[in-house]
Design a binder for these strands. Sequence first.
DNA 1: AAGTCTATCAACCGCTCCGCA
DNA 2: TTGCGGAGCGGTTGATAGACT
Length: 316
Amino acid sequence: MHGNKRKKEKGDELVDYIRKGPWKKEEDEVLLSHVSKYGPRDWSSIRSKGLLQRTGKSCRLRWVNKLRPNLKNGCKFTAEEERVVIELQAQFGNKWAKIASYLSGRTDNDVKNFWSSRQKRLARILQASSSTSNSKSHRNKPKPHHLPNFQAAKLSSSSEGESSSSKPQPCSFSCNDNSEVIKMVALPDLFKPELPNSEPEEFAAPLEINKSSSNMEQTPFPNELQTDLTPFSFGDQDLLARIDDPSFADFFGPLGAYELGLAPQHTIGFPFFDPSEASCRMGSRLGISKSYDSVFDDFPVDMFDQMDPPSIPSKL
DNA sequence: AAGTCTATCAACCGCTCCGCA
DNA sequence: TTGCGGAGCGGTTGATAGACT
């Protein structure tokens, strides 16, 4: 992949040579020197001046993704950052640069990579789930009790349709227990409510638990969201019972608890929201001590066994 | 210990947007 | 008004490290 593109003209004299691939330290230094002199602009002049054999594009990318000050290089996404990304992706779609602008020290590439690996992981979980349920091979995986009996799931994929960007599909599931209704976004990228294209100030987290017998804080959906949802029901009322169970959060994992609305809601900040401090506070408040790799790490492998096999996008 | 799988990161490519002549 | 070039964005790919079998 990483090769060098070169043009040879005027005999064998090398008149144009574009270096590709990993950046060397010396190249970084040259780039930093240029930015300190002229600011982060005029990228193409870096090559035209003969400072680097890189395209302006490549220089800009290197600066934005690696050399820019205050970047959180090598830092995993915190639980709060994950939550912010999930919620903003539901609102904006795959507008990674826009989403990144809400996270201090994160680039669009970071967000994109995070989301991509999350999608892959989820697809794998679903695929494993459907294959194990088809083959009935549960020998090695103890089946978690109290799984909801999903009857339908409408899946959406960021890679299908006219554009892989944006257009989250409306979907949620609901659970009816007499008069009690739970609506939630269980797996944010699979069950996404269609959010109005609103500005951040208007943003409301697409998470809600309404249960009259619950003492949980209620976060009502805006009406327009309620009407946009495509609910389906499942009959297992154990889930309802377990929501009041302190161990329920463990069942879904800490972040699952966030997404199910079991954790305190936070308000997303405006561009350059820095969740690091908040996440520390939140984590200690919830007794969270480990660093979360992902929303799904703590999901039982076959939690989707009772779902109808979804149509997995061919490519994620 | 070795092979395989998975997650993550870094960088490229193609496309679109925007300013300018 | 239009064409051009630079900048920015999103999708994709390849390398690599770590986990798993």
